[in-house]
Amino acid sequence: MVPLSWYLALSAVLFTIGVVGVLIQRNAIVLFMCIELMLNAVNLTLVAFSRFLGDVTGQLFVFMVMTVAAAEAAVGLAIIISLFRNRETLNVDEADLLKL
């Protein structure tokens, strides 16, 4: 059996890669993909805990995460499309009508 810590480590590495991706990427759609990556890393953690705790809750939680991810994807891509219609770029740096 593969040890729990391996799964947790992999999941943490994937989560970290996602976070770093959000920081360094500029393209809104890729940024969004990095967030999906983070959610997936969490899913791995949940399933691993579910297996090692002998508790089904973790897997059910993953269902909810998947549903939410689907809803988020639909709305997020709709937002991206509506922005793209109005200004042909997805570079978040150029989305600067509103300054920091």
């Binding site: 059996m1 947790l8 480590a9 090692f52 705790l53 897997q59």
Partner: peptide, 24 residues
Amino acid sequence: LLGMIAAVVKTVGNPAPRGTDQLG
């Protein structure tokens, strides 16, 4: 974050899985 991961992995160690194979 990688340091954090190392810490987590170290504390968690290698417990035996408690779930049956029918859990999923």
